[in-house]
Write a protein that binds this DNA or RNA. Structure first.
Lengths: 218, 218
DNA sequence: CAACGCTATGAACCATGGTTCATTTCTTTT
DNA sequence: AAAAGAAATGAACCATGGTTCATAGCGTTG
């Protein structure tokens, strides 16, 4: 017996591993998953290319872990709100606002998670991510229908519509120009949320947030 | 002077060109644009790989032309309806039904056009395609608002929401299972359309199709 | 500090798939 | 039918980018 990993080493290894993920995350934030090349990750993390393979069995494994890490943060926020105990329609409004609001703020990341062309492996992770979103929406809708707050509709379908409408309206080719979004983020988010709420039969009554215009743009 | 293309040859060339596009289209219908490999296209078209490059300057050029050809057929249908002279809300219903209905029937193709991960070049073509969709929706909405049929909303945003909701709810990971879609296509389409209409403030009044429920369960 | 084995290295390797080009085959003209 | 292009061929070529592996460097133990 001549070697056993010591705590100090274990810590250093963990740090390297984290550093690699950090580097990859930074690349995603800059240029999406398309910008994650093993050689670049290595360079950015300050290790050799080969080293990456001591921590991750393949590029796919690295990207999957990264995707999960990043996306679970997002889902966590929404799940938390969804699990609250208020009326369903209020939780719904808040979830939608949060979803849309975070997507606008972190557009780059949101693009990578929701809209960027990915290869099939990562598309699987994304599918899981989106399904979870839809589940969150559907759950709230069910609550609302059960207790009569909302009209009865097919919650799976409505949830999918919402999960499609919000990202499409905020990122990608159908979204407003980026600088326009920066200027009007709140108004745009509010308009999208309004659409989704109306879609499930909720009409937004005036509230605190609506210092923003209620004028109906032509 | 020793050669000048004769009509017969020109016709044969045109035929070969069309054959190449056909082969590529068939591959798209089977496995999306991912299945379009130059060698496969050549095999299917019954020509040599090199021959493809006598007709198309690159794979990109071939795919773009194909994308345009296929997508313009779809857009044509919608544009036609949109240009009609009936009330905006009726045109809207019909456009949405047509869009969704065709997407369900030609799911494979719809996937390739709307949802499949594509590389950047083709993503440009798709962006154009989707923008055109959104324009069609937006146009009708504007009409409806102008003449008071519809409440005033931001038509660009609503159009983007619709253009996102429909494909998401019909194809990809959030869509119902394929066999379920086959069984319930009409009901699913109707439900999605209902969501979108409600989103822009139209409530579907009972019509021929609406033997389906309108009850609002408590 | 010697021996052993874990960790890191990065240039070489390999797979994929688009593109080229020397050669052959086919058409047209005289 | 021979000359001169045009068209077709498909194997070789090349670019990209992920993965491997022989080697060097470090840490741990006795």
């Amino acid at each position: 017996m001549a070697y056993r990993q010591t705590d100090r080493v274990a810590a250093r290894l963990a740090e390297t591993r984290a550093g690699i993920l950090d580097a990859a995350r930074a690349l995603v934030a800059e240029g999406g998953f398309a910008a994650v090349q093993m050689s670049e990750v290595a360079r950015k993390a300050g290790v050799a290319t080969g080293t990456l393979y001591r921590y991750f069995s393949s590029k796919e494994a690295l990207c999957r872990e990264l995707f999960r890490e990043v996306s679970s943060r997002e889902m966590g926020k929404l799940a938390e709100i969804a699990a609250g105990h208020g009326p369903a329609s209020e939780r719904l409004v808040e979830v939608l606002r949060t979803f849309a609001g975070r997507a606008v703020k972190g557009r780059r990341l949101a693009y990578a998670l929701l809209a960027e062309p990915l290869d099939v492996n990562l598309a699987e992770e994304r599918a899981f991510f989106r399904r979870t979103h839809a589940d969150i929406f559907a759950r709230i809708l069910e609550d609302g229908i059960e207790n009569g707050e909302l009209p009865a509709i097919d919650v799976r379908i409505a949830a999918a519509c919402i999960a499609g409408a919000i990202p499409t309206a905020l990122i990608g080719p159908l979204a407003p120009q980026s600088h326009e979004l920066d200027r009007n983020a709140d108004r745009v988010v509010e308009e999208i949320v309004k659409f989704c709420l109306a879609g499930v039969g909720v009409t937004l009554t005036a509230r605190r947030e609506s210092n923003s215009e209620r004028r109906t743009v032509a």
